[in-house]
Amino acid sequence: MTYKQLKWFILLIPTITVGLWEYVRHEYLLPYISMDVGNWLTPVIVLFVTFTLLTRFFTKLELMQEQLKVERAEKAVLEERERIAHDLHDGMAQSLFLLSIKVKQLEKLQIAEKDQPKLEALHKNIVDIHHYVRTGIENLRQPPHKDLPALDSFHTHIRKFENETDIHVTKSITMDEKHLTAEEKFELAACVGEALVNIRKHAQATKVIIHMEGTERERYLVVKDNGVGFDQEDAFEEDHYGLKMMAERCKRINWLFNVKRENNWTILKFSPK
């Protein structure tokens, strides 16, 4: 039933009730009840009908109004996120892209051999920052996270990685979504996406394993790859933007994020505090 139909029902039901009662009273009941009794019964019948029917309509009307408020608020948030994403794209993202091109052009100039690694590192940092800005723009343009199936997001990230790298991801995902909040599902799926991006860009891996357990007894997420890895002590230095972003996401949902290198595997583990 639409909002407009509900309003018409609320307006017409008392009128129709009084009309029907007066018709029945004058046509059939006048010999049996007096005029005074009939007049007293009229508001009682209207009150009874109002409580039995109209209160349900009022409840539904209030619910529709609340939903409308939520939709308006979400629309306002989406419009603001889109505005911020547009500003980032037209400002920072394009500036970083142009900066990376200019740095790339510097490589054609005669530069001291000792300074060449610094130039390459600068170019790599700019490219990485540009990537994370674009990732942030994409996240801003997505609707705010709701209580949606997290498995869809997990498998979307995995399929994208497999298509881009031709590496099959060995996955074992056991999840009862009622044991994870909407925010946990959103942030963990984003962490999986970020981990796979890091593997694709830096790890030179040939094998990737993802294990997710989200049940009443256990909750954790593990992402492993057999790539080249990195110095564990420098894992959260400034140029490891992906790891820092994952750590920030875990902090938001009060989870722990651990990184270690074991038996030639890089292991990222996410678990509740």
Rank of each mutant, 00 (worst) to 15 (best):
216 E>R: 01
202 H>F: 15
212 M>D: 00
207 K>Y: 09
187 E>I: 08
196 L>N: 03
200 R>E: 12
200 R>H: 13
190 A>V: 09
207 K>F: 04
188 L>H: 02
196 L>Y: 03
200 R>S: 14
187 E>G: 02
206 T>V: 13
197 V>Y: 14
201 K>R: 08
209 I>C: 01
203 A>W: 03
215 T>Q: 14
198 N>Y: 02
212 M>C: 05
192 V>Y: 08
210 I>Q: 01
191 C>E: 06
205 A>C: 01
215 T>I: 02
211 H>F: 04
204 Q>L: 14
201 K>L: 13
195 A>W: 05
207 K>D: 04
200 R>P: 05
185 K>L: 10
218 E>R: 15
205 A>H: 00
206 T>R: 13
215 T>V: 01
209 I>Y: 11
189 A>C: 07
186 F>L: 06
202 H>V: 04
210 I>P: 11
212 M>F: 00
187 E>L: 15
214 G>N: 06
191 C>F: 09
196 L>H: 01
186 F>E: 13
216 E>A: 12
202 H>S: 10
203 A>N: 01
201 K>Y: 03
198 N>M: 02
197 V>C: 11
191 C>K: 03
185 K>V: 06
194 E>Q: 07
201 K>M: 07
209 I>P: 02
213 E>P: 10
203 A>M: 08
194 E>D: 13
186 F>V: 09
201 K>V: 09
